[in-house]
């Protein structure tokens, strides 16, 4: 039932959305520096659902059958749009997304699909992979 843990070598696929952090305009302005304190919208940062016990208790990826490894602030992932050719390095700087709110949701590019929201990017990181207006994109993640 549960998919295998996100292993160090094996890439996994996931849906990704974006969030703002650090100083920003509009309703984002109250977001602050994220769970790690130094998150910035203009840097290549990301949020991961299992950065700590307290974080995991909120995001609950296990409820969607995803067994994610603990990766703490500062860990780097390599991510790519499922149809893209550019891979970028993103650094964990926050806790999120709230995976259990969207269990089973699927996003595709052509025939390549990804299920469940396991990662969120800052606008800088997200726009290196896709368009902000799309809201959610399918990506692959590897450590």
């Amino acid at each position: 039932m549960a998919s295998p843990p996100v292993e160090v070598m094996a890439p996994t696929t996931a849906e990704a959305s974006w969030f703002c952090c650090g100083p920003a305009f509009g309703p984002c302005g109250t977001a602050g520096g994220g769970a790690c304190g130094t998150c910035k919208s203009a840097s290549l940062h990301c949020a991961w659902p299992n950065t700590s016990d307290a974080c995991f208790d909120i995001t609950r990826p296990d409820k969607c059958g995803d067994d994610l490894l603990r990766r703490t602030c500062g860990h780097q992932f390599f991510v790519k749009h499922l149809c893209g050719t550019t891979e970028i390095a993103v650094t964990i700087r926050d806790c999120g997304p709230q995976t259990d709110l969207w269990c089973g949701e699927r996003r595709c590019c052509g025939g390549n699909c990804a299920t469940n929201r396991l990662i969120d990017f800052t606008p800088a990181a997200f726009t290196r992979l896709g368009s902000l207006s799309a809201g959610i994109i399918p990506v692959s993640i590897r450590s």
Binding site: C83, G84, R107, C109, G110
Partner: peptide, 12 residues
């Protein structure tokens, strides 16, 4: 559009 093979090829 995102679901099409054409988009998949053209995306990069």
């Amino acid at each position: 559009l995102h679901k099409s093979q054409v988009y998949q090829s053209a995306y990069p």
